[in-house]
Each structure stands twice: as C-alpha cells, then as structure tokens.
C-alpha cells in the first residue's frame, strides 16, 4: 500500500497507457439516457455527472450468460470442451464506486463457498478495479450502514480521490494495482500529504447491522414481510442491478449435435425460482420471496459466509418499478 499524487494530465496519460497496454477498459458512459459501464478507448467518453450507474460491475466477473462448457455428439459418443481461463481478456474497470468494489467479496464468497468456481475465479484473476472515492451521494446510498464508506478501499486495486485541482490522491492498494501504476510510473508523484477524508461525502449511518441481525434472527414468521412486499411485482430488476446477487440458472443451448451449457442470471424474486417439478412451490407468494431476499443478504450470508450480502449501493431501490426501497425497509426492521 502506497499513497501518491497524480495530476489531471497525469490521469489522462496513465489512462491512455492502460489502453495502449491492450487491456480492455470499461467505464461509466452516458448513452440512451442511462449511465452504465461500457468499453471505452478515450477518457472523454467517461461520464462525470452522475451518482450511480444503473448496473453494477458484477457482469465483469459474473457474466449475464456464460458458457460453462461445450460439447459435441459424435456417433453416440460425446466430446467435451472445457471452459478456458485463457479466453478471458485482461480487463480494467475504471471509475468504480467503493460500494461496487466491495461487492466482489460477497460475490466471491458465494461462488467459492466450499469449492472453487473456476469461471468466476478466472474472471477475478483478470480484472483490476480502479475505484474513485465518492464526493457525492443520494438518498438511496447507505454504504456507511453496511461496513462501507465513501472512501472504502476494500476490493479496489487502486483508489483515486479527486482533488479540486483536477488531480487525485492515488492509493495503490494491491500488487495488481502496482502493476497498473507501473504502466506509467512517471505520473505517480510523491504524496502531497492531503487527507482524503476532506474530499469524501458525509454519509451518516442509518441503521446498525448488529441490530438488524438480531431482529432478523427472530423475524422469519413476522408479518413485516407481507406488509413490506404487497406492492412488489416479483421481477428481477433488484437482483440484476445488485453487485452481490449471485443466483443463477443453468440452461442448454442446442444446435443440432453441438451444444453449450450456459449459466445465466436468475433471481429469487421470480415466482418459478423454487418451483418443484411436482408443482409444489415452497415460496409460492411474493412475501416469501421478499423475505428470502432480505434474510439471505442480512442474515444467512453473515452467518454462513461471514460477509453481508449488501454494500449499500442503493441500486435496487433506484431500479425498482414500484419503489421498494431497501434502506427504508431495513431501517424499519431495525426500529421494530
């Protein structure tokens, strides 16, 4: 861990050096009225005026639809072609928020629970995160309530904190971050000694995780689930924009004698997610599915995986068509 200063022009030169190195760079871009991570070549494509991208960066390490392996049937025999980790390109996620970077830990905790996930790990090994600390937030943000903060460095390889002169404090946090900086070492100047805290948005915590946890440990049969979820229409919007939601489906893409087995995003909010073939559905009502969403993130994951399944990014609240606001709902559970 090393702290440096990088000037405004230094940032641009360094960004260009990353592009020239051949790595793919994804950054927030404003297009079709949406801010989302897109492949970029130029720093001026990167959006500046926004609080949060619609989608998280999870697709970089957990693609929406990914081929687990492919196969071909020849004369009654089957030939398998395994997923090749070498097929994953080196990728830099640029201008990631701390709440997005923090999402890799819970995501990986799920994928690597008691058995490594080769595909996820291959993406992780090739993905570097350059995060920018947050100078602004909106009413959906609550990272400080879930062990995070606007300057949280967890998960980041390098974190930049923008300064009024257009330059930035650069915290080089991991060896991978060191390698990224080494692409153009000259722009990383000596630390000027300014404190980064001054440039971070002030975001007071809204609830205590312990309190939520205690309440949830006794809440399975509570009426709160039905009360909160009445308006929920059971789509996958909240899960798909979330940096930590990992539920998936496995499907078959068949073309004659060839085929591919595909892992694709799924959501615990969907009515058919747990439907047995017999027709029995243990989570028949939306209230049961809403309960699963909250308990999984705030109770089961902390207990089983030692990590909270929410980074406070607020995306689910912004994406929900019927304003199911997770901060509002969790706060009200904490206060029950």
């Amino acid at each position: 861990m090393e702290t440096k200063y990088i000037s405004q022009s230094g940032i641009e030169q360094w960004f260009n050096a990353i592009i020239t190195s051949g790595k793919r760079v994804y950054a927030p871009v404003n297009s079709r009225g949406q801010i989302d991570f897109k492949l970029v070549k130029n720093l001026n494509e990167v959006s500046s005026e926004y609080i949060q991208t619609t989608q998280s960066i999870k697709a970089s390490v957990y693609p929406k639809a990914e081929v687990l392996f492919s196969y071909e049937k020849v004369n009654g025999k089957v030939n398998l072609t395994d997923f090749d980790p070498e097929s994953v390109p080196e990728t830099v996620m640029w201008k990631v928020h701390p709440c997005d970077a923090a999402g890799f830990k819970p995501l990986s905790a799920i994928f690597n629970w008691d058995g490594a996930d080769k595909l996820h790990n291959a993406h992780l090994a090739k993905t570097s995160l350059v995060s920018f600390s947050c100078a602004s937030a909106d009413e959906s943000c609550f990272c400080t309530s879930v062990n995070g903060s606007p300057g949280n460095t967890a998960g980041s390889d390098i974190q930049l904190t923008m300064l009024p002169d257009g330059g930035a404090i650069a915290e080089i946090l991991t060896s991978r971050g060191g390698e990224l900086a080494a692409l153009l070492p000259s722009v990383f100047e000596a630390d000027k000694g300014v404190k980064k805290e001054k440039y971070l948005v002030d975001l007071p915590a809204r609830f205590s995780l312990e309190e939520v946890n205690t309440k949830l440990s006794k809440a399975f049969n509570s009426t709160v689930w039905k009360e909160q979820s009445e308006r929920c229409i059971g789509c996958g919007a909240c899960a798909f924009v979330c940096p930590t939601c990992a539920c998936f489906d496995i499907q078959e893409d068949v073309h004659g004698s060839k085929g591919r087995r595909i892992r694709c995003w799924d959501a615990c909010g969907f009515a058919m997610f747990t439907l047995h073939t017999s027709g029995h559905n243990p989570r028949e009502h939306q209230s049961q599915r809403w309960r699963q969403r909250i308990l999984h993130k705030f109770s089961y994951m902390p207990e089983r995986l030692g990590v909270v399944g929410c980074t406070g990014c607020g995306r689910c609240s912004r994406a929900c068509p019927v304003d199911m606001n997770i901060l509002e709902h969790i706060t009200s559970i904490a206060q029950q």
């Binding site: 229409i233 789509c235 996958g236 899960a239 798909f240 995003w265």
Partner: peptide
C-alpha cells in the same frame, strides 16, 4: 437482461 419487469 431479462429481468421481466416489463412483464411483471
């Protein structure tokens, strides 16, 4: 991304 919010 097939969240089916439109359908819901």
């Amino acid at each position: 991304f097939k969240c089916y919010a439109c359908r819901s």
